[in-house]
Write a protein that binds this DNA or RNA. Structure first.
Lengths: 246, 246
DNA sequence: TTAATAGTGTCTGTAAGACACTATCTA
DNA sequence: TAGATAGTGTCTTACAGACACTATTAA
């Protein structure tokens, strides 16, 4: 099959970002307000075109930096808590009414950040609890996301929920140094359940290499001072943390 | 951002297929021989261009049918044992020396099939043990796959290996009706380990909804007649099957 | 008979779930 | 003091891993 340009139809390739964080005990996603048709004025996931010379994950990191100022280095990196990975690709013919767009969605897990600065071409950006964005996914909810972004968001949330079961990825939602209680509240927010603090403590501190004590303590959560940890080298949690009510 | 064609660079979008099966106690992948440059004469994963009006998973199913005669219905379907799902997308600028190609890889799990019929434009097709295709992934192995297909295959194999831990997907490698021993040999081939037959039997028959007895028996594996089962409705295995030596 | 696979039962160690109890901070 | 969170210990139960033993076929 020689690569005659007439052989293949032209596609636009974009990256869309599911940027998740935990704010006030709720899992939140970054949304931007659309400035043009279609879906003008509606909220959407941040994203943009992939450039000619650019790798997919590089494009995702660039869009993330433009939208939030967040920096990542390599795919899978957990520098400063920020994690970026490819999620899935969406290419249904009618998903964009104007032309054929294939979007490679990426998942970003970030610690709680200051209110997003809409640095890019977006008309506004904010954190929205995913529960509100995903309620009544089938019907026309009031806060319905543009395009098929509700489905993309749902896939990203499900990926995050399942990945923290067997990996140390939940630490990506925490600052560089965090307490066991703060990590537990991340699990509770992402899964939407309550976990037993004692059993959780035993599980995460008993897994070798999962948490590394940094030496200090903090009382920023109130109560007795808690030890500070950072994420250890062990990225796999075996046996996994069990998600209740599955 | 108005969709002026000059705004975005032209991409070709293809689907590549990681088709896995278990033959003679070995995990094998479907490979086709390339008829043109680059990589002429080398083995590669089957694949092809996505058509204008075609969904990504539809394109993957079409390529699969053209290449093997295998039929699937919906994504995630387990009809006649065949399973098809999206794997990941590969779009590094230099991955195809001729032009910018973004490939959406898909993973197919199929029962043991007759020798593949190279029905498509491929110069030949065969099953190759993945162990041989992946050995010395970094160096220039003798049986090196074209493009970045060795990495795509490695990602597909890893996906299959991890998914059978917590799902009933291993049944996709079996015929519609199978015995507990045949299912165990699938796990052993995919993971490359030996499992205790007694503990395996207890695990899979003790999980409600995982296996459904069909009533008959078979002696096609030799020895005492074994009950025949089909995959049950329970697609999630909780607690998961533990992969040894991880 | 032997050799193969199928299937049941039993023991042991690990770990999860439930929860009592103590420790140390702020208000 | 009360009330919050941190952290340890204990008991029970579930289940994986190891393995003895029986069952039923083919050669």
């Amino acid at each position: 099959m020689p690569y005659d340009p007439s052989d293949f139809p032209p596609f636009a390739v974009t990256v869309d970002l599911v940027v998740l964080t935990v704010r006030r005990h709720a899992l939140c996603a970054l949304t931007v307000r659309r400035g043009e048709e279609p879906y003008r004025g509606q909220w959407a996931l941040p994203g943009g075109f992939v450039r000619v010379e650019e790798d997919l994950v590089t494009a995702a990191a660039r869009e993330l930096a433009e939208e939030t100022g967040l920096g990542t280095q390599d795919p899978g990196s957990t520098q400063a808590g920020v994690h970026l990975e490819q999620l899935a690709t969406y290419g249904e013919p009618g998903r964009d009414p104007r032309m054929r767009v294939v979007s490679v969605a990426h998942l970003v897990l970030a610690p709680d950040l200051p209110a997003p600065t809409a640095g890019g071409d977006a008309g506004g950006a904010r954190w929205t609890p995913v529960a509100r964005l995903l309620e009544g996914l089938d019907e026309q909810a009031t806060e319905r996301l543009a395009f098929d972004h509700a489905r993309i968001l749902a896939d990203g949330v499900e990926r995050a929920r399942s990945k923290i079961e067997y990996s140390s990825l939940a630490a990506a939602f925490c600052p560089a140094e965090f307490t066991v209680g703060e990590l537990r509240r991340v699990y509770e927010a992402v899964w939407g359940v309550a976990l037993d603090p004692r059993n959780f403590h035993r599980k995460v501190t008993g897994t070798p290499g999962f948490l590394v004590p940094v030496g200090g303590t903090t009382t920023r959560q109130g109560g007795r001072p808690a030890q500070l940890f950072r994420a250890g080298g062990a990225t796999l949690l075996n046996p996994p943390m069990l998600r209740p009510e599955v």
